[in-house]
């Protein structure tokens, strides 16, 4: 019998192999990479598409992937597709930029005055459920068959999600950070630029991404509806035109281009911004 507190040592050899770290095999590592898994999914889908297309053997309804690629390359070579894509992108960027600027003005008014905040909340509640495309008939009446109408509905599709996200991001900035900013003597616009915008950046970026997706969809849909403007149509028009000509592989090529541009913007532009900002700052994981 013992009554004294003491330390009893344990023999070390009873423990396991002592292995702390084992390098994973190449395949295990590759499969852990989400990029590799996603590429595998895309390849599988492409294979199914190709096989189904060949099996139905009806190029008018469902051309195989190889025909679609051939049409895509033809259309790129002839310069038609790049020109159409550029037309779409130009208008998109115009509307997107205008929408962001207006969202910025609205949000700044909203965080500085109670009335501005009420205005923003009421307007977003009313207008954000309204699909932009539903405004197209009116826009055509007001701005005519030109880019003006397109820019108008693009602004509508960008403004509300961006303003809503930015505003809720600003409001979520912690009291402590606000007090730190004021401690430095920051006021007014300097305070917004140096404290609120970076602190709310995750929400702002989310708003910009949603705004981009909305704008892109709205634009392609609008082009499908009213097609060519001032002699040069965009991607939506390209799809519509080729369907009328029964060039179905080209229709698919147009759809692929829409998807590709979306992927590039999402994965190259927004991903890079995310990696350099919110991920590095630990504001998002």
């Amino acid at each position: 019998m013992s009554s004294k507190a003491r330390i009893v040592m344990r023999p070390l050899e009873d423990a396991g192999s002592g292995e702390v770290e084992r390098e994973l095999s190449f395949l295990e590592k590759a499969w852990d990479n989400s990029g590799v898994r996603k590429v595998a999914i895309i390849l599988a889908l492409a294979l199914i598409w190709e096989l189904y297309g060949r099996w139905t053997d009806n190029a008018l309804l469902f051309p195989p992937l190889s025909d679609t690629f051939a049409a895509l390359i033809d259309n790129i070579r002839s310069g038609v597709l790049p020109a159409r894509a550029w037309t779409s992108l130009k208008i998109l960027l115009m509307g997107y930029a205008a929408g962001i600027v207006m969202a910025g003005i609205l949000t700044i008014a909203a965080i500085n005055t109670r009335l501005g905040s009420d205005f923003l909340e009421t307007m977003t509640a009313m207008l954000s459920p309204l699909p932009a495309i539903a405004l197209l008939p009116l826009a055509l009446l007001w701005f005519g068959l030109g880019n003006g109408s397109l820019v108008f509905i693009l602004i509508h599709s960008v403004l509300w999600p961006v303003a809503l996200n930015t505003h809720s991001g600003f409001r979520a900035v912690s009291t402590t950070l606000r007090m730190v900013g004021r401690n430095y003597g920051l006021k007014g616009f300097a305070f917004i630029r140096k404290i609120l915008i970076p602190a709310a950046f995750p929400s702002i970026l989310a708003g910009l991404k949603i705004g981009w997706a909305f704008a892109w969809r709205t634009l392609v849909a609008a082009e499908l509806v009213f097609g060519v403007s001032s002699g040069q149509g965009g991607l939506g028009w390209f799809i519509f035109e080729n369907r009328n000509l029964l060039e179905i592989p080209s229709v698919f090529a147009g759809l692929l281009t829409v998807i590709l541009i979306g992927l590039i913007v999402e994965n190259l532009i927004f991903r890079t911004i995310e990696r350099r900002t919110v991920l590095r700052w630990g504001l998002q994981s």
Partner: peptide, 20 residues
Amino acid sequence: MEPGPDRMMVFQEFDQLLPW
């Protein structure tokens, strides 16, 4: 009259550093 850098604050909260 108002906050200023002649009176620097240290807060209790850990989020007082600018995360960016």
